[in-house]
Design a protein around this nucleic acid. Structure first.
Lengths: 230, 230
DNA sequence: CAGTAAATCAACAATGTTGTTGATATGCTT
DNA sequence: AAGCATATCAACAACATTGTTGATTTACTG
């Protein structure tokens, strides 16, 4: 699954300057790259250390076990993701309701650029016992819940289910798209189709079209008897 | 990740009766169990052979490489899944339009019972270059496309995108549910919430509610300008 | 400028894994 | 019943990986 990238260039048998934080970052960055290339199964501490230009022992000093390294990397990716999608905007409870469309676009862009990485992150979070600990998950969730409660949304939405579905689609569709296409053009088209379908779905299932005049609205709704919003 | 099951009971150092097909099945079955327990990363040919009560060499005779064993197992699971969901009903092009609700229920049941297995299968298929080769995928796809084209469905559905989304949700929600809950009761509730949200979604996004009188219909739709249904 | 805590590294031991190969037993065919 | 193809197995070789430990260097502190 070499993807045109070559990580075999290691020509620094020199001792690393003492710099705990820097080393830690280097390790995480390397882990991220390898994760993005091979997925989680193929990640060994050896490779990570090598790519990071760090002794394996050092890596073990920073992350006592392979598993913990994986977790830390996922969290690190989550933070990166949060920055890419929400920019500097803090996860402040009083934060304004961001533009969902923008969020979706940023998210999709990230997913298309790093399909494996996105997939890994999502799984780590999905299987974690406290997804809310992840920075991106937390902010996404907060924001979506706010939207679901607003009068922009259909009533009765189960925000949790819906969030998970959206994240699943956004991060895993690219995995599918990658394996089905050869050219970037094809991928672009698949990405487009995905967006379209999501939009169609949202219009008829999530958003109140009449609140989004720029999109041809044609739906009417009645209050449901649903009780759950979380 | 021991899940209450113990596979360490192997007390048969006796030579296996010659039976190629049986052996092959035994290997696949063992691989399936291990896959369901540990996920794909943790699967080694050694373990599989041991659990199957077969010499490792024999396993290599049947499946030249670990990777091929994984593929074969996925296909095998796919067939199992097809049977569980569609029963004996053949993938015949002239087959009647099955009951989508029934299909969804069967699928959900399978996914809840074998979360890891479902996940593994889905990934193998999603990343395969020809998903259509998988027996279950093929039949599901066929059936859904038929539905999408029928007058029971909203117009303009992108059947491929939609299928992928449905499968993603159905097979990966249980992964989430598992990690969030301790009791079977909680899991049951999460499964219920998922079904509800999917139904709500389908009503407003996929199915024409007026065609499903038994569910309170309250939607109206207008023909879209979408061109693609694949 | 000592002295110290700790960050980095090299080497070790213990496993586990993958493929391969040549021996052995087994069922089928004639 | 003899012969043969092959399904099954045991043993081997080559690695890779995981943790661990003790030495070495580096920055900081008084």
């Amino acid at each position: 699954m070499l993807d045109g990238v070559d990580f075999t260039t290691n020509k620094k048998p020199r001792r690393r300057k003492r710099d705990p934080d820097g080393t830690r970052s280097a390790i995480l960055e390397a882990a991220g790259k390898l994760l993005a290339r091979d997925g989680p199964e193929g990640l060994s501490v050896s490779q990570v250390a090598q790519l990071a230009g760090v002794n394996r022992g050092t890596a073990y000093q920073h992350f006592p076990t392979r598993e913990q390294l994986l977790e830390a990397t996922a969290a690190w990716v989550g933070e990166k993701l949060r920055l890419a999608v929400f920019g500097g905007q803090m996860a402040d409870p009083a934060a304004a309701l961001g533009d969902p469309k923008m969020v979706a676009e940023q998210m999709t862009a990230f997913a298309m650029e790093n399909p494996e990485l996105g997939r890994v992150w999502l799984f780590e979070v999905l299987s974690s016992s406290r997804p809310d600990n992840d920075p991106f998950w937390h902010q996404y969730w907060t924001q979506f819940e706010k939207f679901a409660k607003s009068d922009m949304a259909q009533p009765g939405i189960d925000a949790e289910v819906h969030s998970v579905l959206m994240l699943l689609g956004t991060f895993l569709w690219p995995v599918f798209a990658r394996s089905q296409t050869r050219t970037a053009k094809d991928r672009q088209e698949l990405a487009q189709r995905f967006s379209n379908e999501i939009l169609r779905w949202s219009l008829y299932g999530t958003m109140r079209p009449e609140k989004y005049p720029e999109l041809d609205a044609r739906v009417k709704k009645a209050a449901g008897t649903s009780k759950r919003s979380r």
